[in-house]
C-alpha cells in the first residue's frame, strides 16, 4: 500500500509545482494584465491621495469596492457613474453624518482637495475593467 515516503513526495512535489505555476501566473498578471485592466497610467497623485484616505479611514469597514469590504453600506465601484462627483462630495462632511436611508455614515472633516482626491480615486476604480462586475440587473425596478 501507500508508503509514507510516497505521501511525503506527493505533498512536497505537488506544493512546489503548484506554487511555481501560481508565481508564473502572478507575474503575468502584474506585468501584462493589471496595467491594462486598471489603466495604471492614470494613477496620479490625486488618485494616490484618495486611496490613502480610503484606507486610513477604513471605508471598507462599511462599504464594498470591487465587491470587497463590509456589507453595511452601498457598493461603490460604479458610484462615480451612478451619482456623479457633486453628490459624492456632499456625503463626506455632512453635518451630523450623512444619513439618507436610515444608516449613519461617519462625519468627516475633509478639505476640498481631499474630497477631490476621493472622487478621483472612485472615478479611477469605476473605469477599471472588472470582468463584468457589478452585474447589470435583469429588471431595473429603481430606474
Amino acid at each position: 500500500m501507500l508508503s509514507k515516503k510516497q505521501a511525503k513526495m506527493f505533498f512536497l512535489g505537488g506544493t512546489a509545482v503548484f506554487f511555481l505555476i501560481f508565481i508564473g501566473m502572478t507575474v503575468d498578471t502584474l506585468v501584462n494584465g493589471v496595467p491594462k485592466y486598471t489603466h495604471a497610467s492614470q494613477i496620479d497623485d490625486q488618485v494616490r491621495l484618495g486611496r490613502h484616505l480610503w484606507d486610513s479611514n477604513n471605508c471598507m469597514g462599511c462599504h464594498t469596492i470591487m465587491g470587497e469590504g463590509a456589507y453595511y453600506a452601498p457598493e461603490l465601484t460604479k458610484v462615480y457613474e451612478r451619482r456623479g462627483p457633486e453628490y459624492i462630495k456632499t456625503t463626506f462632511n455632512f453635518p451630523g453624518g450623512w444619513r439618507p436611508n436610515g444608516r449613519n455614515m461617519v462625519e468627516y472633516n475633509f478639505t476640498e482637495q481631499e474630497k477631490e482626491a476621493l472622487v478621483a480615486f472612485l472615478k479611477w476604480v469605476g473605469e477599471s475593467d472588472l470582468n463584468g462586475f457589478p452585474p447589470k440587473p435583469s429588471v431595473q425596478l429603481d430606474k
Binding site: 501507500l2 505555476i21 501584462n32 470587497e68 470582468n131
Partner: peptide, 28 residues
C-alpha cells in the same frame, strides 16, 4: 501518512484556488 495526503490535496487545490478572489478585481 494520511496527514501528508490531505495537506497535499489542500495545497493542490488551495494555491490556485486563490483565483476565486481575483475574479472581479481588475485582473485577466
Amino acid at each position: 501518512k494520511w496527514l501528508y495526503v490531505i495537506v497535499g490535496l489542500t495545497f493542490l487545490s488551495g494555491i490556485l484556488g486563490t483565483g476565486h478572489h481575483y475574479y472581479f478585481i481588475g485582473v485577466p
